[in-house]
Design a protein around this nucleic acid. Structure first.
Lengths: 186, 186
DNA sequence: CCCTGAATGTTACTCGCTAACATTCAGCCG
DNA sequence: CGGCTGAATGTTAGCGAGTAACATTCAGGG
């Protein structure tokens, strides 16, 4: 992993990412080797792994954000844990994603098409899930209750983001819809 | 993959499984190589892969059961999709697991300890999730709604099963508790 | 007793990924 | 302008998961 992206390193990383997306879209994720990606980027496989720890890291980045756990914990403690997580995540995730560039859409489409990558997304959200669980447990919520609530809400959001989007709808709006569906009034 | 387990193949498979659980528990999942497992089972690595398609398949088996989708689809169609999936899975999963042998507990403990294996579990439940979504969509439910409901409930159940269990509580009881927590009255 | 097919072994290979060490590049200072 | 320094990249070698093609052994029925 390159320490702090110097101007040169940033360009190299961008070239690798472009080459990867291009090849993944043209010949599929699994059939594409990182050697091919590195080659197309004019770079060595070793350099690929210095910029992305794994092959799937090009598409799946850890969205861990301590802010989410904060907002969840800030919901009224009198609510049942599931409601607390649901409303907290709604508040935290409904607004973000201002940088909803075309690259993000390409990544999502590629991940959605591959079961192994979908699993990688779950692994990447583990940190966020643990953060939420930790905060709730610290507030006296039973560990099982906290885990179930966090897993259900994160699973719902992930699934919603990977569904083929009604184009025009923002990613934030999709998340909001997903979490609303988990409320009883839906 | 061995076609149909002859008596000999069944014994070999059992030896591999025993050796794998033993080594995984003693030195961890990742540090253990399939060569070591095969060796301890008195077998070649090639034979290992003929009985288990991947290393993690020793611990993670696809629990796909068309019955679950059936029971979900049988819930009253007037209910919101999330309630339908929740109650359906409660009915389908609350009772099963009669073969709750010690081996199952060992597997669960090993999976719970490893993030990569947890991810493998969600990949393995993809078939079940798709089956539920397919049934609901066939009933006229919007695809996003169906996906979100199925993902939330499956995520909750998986998370609950991987939490360190109050020993004495059956796996079926844990699932029931998890799904009840997603109801509003909790 | 052989004969047949299933189960296993052997060999060789690809791909993801890592470590240790050498090399080139970009900018700052004299 | 020219060398210095550290970051970025290259080179080589290797491990482990997984696969393919082909050879070999085993168990049971004619």
């Amino acid at each position: 992993m390159v320490h702090l992206s110097s101007p040169r390193a940033r360009r190299t990383r961008a070239r690798i990412l472009d080459a990867a997306l291009d090849l993944f879209e043209r010949q599929g994720y699994e059939p594409t080797t990182v050697a091919q990606v590195a080659d197309a980027a004019g770079v060595t496989p070793m350099t690929f792994f210095r910029h992305f720890p794994t092959k799937d890291a090009v598409l799946v980045t850890d969205p861990y954000d301590p802010l989410i756990a904060d907002v969840v914990a800030a919901q009224p403690a009198v609510l049942p844990p599931f409601e607390r997580v649901r409303l907290g995540m709604r508040a935290a995730l409904g607004e973000i994603d201002p940088d909803e560039d075309a690259t993000a859409r390409r990544r999502v489409a590629l991940v959605a098409a591959n079961p192994a990558l979908r699993a990688a997304v779950v692994a990447a959200t583990a940190a966020t899930e643990d953060a939420i669980v930790g905060r709730l447990v610290h507030d006296g919520v039973a560990r099982l209750d906290a885990r179930v609530a966090a897993a259900a809400c994160l699973g719902a959001c992930t699934a919603a983001l990977l569904e083929p989007p009604d184009d025009g709808e923002s990613l934030g709006a999709v998340v909001t819809r997903a979490l609303d569906l988990l409320g009883q009034a839906s």
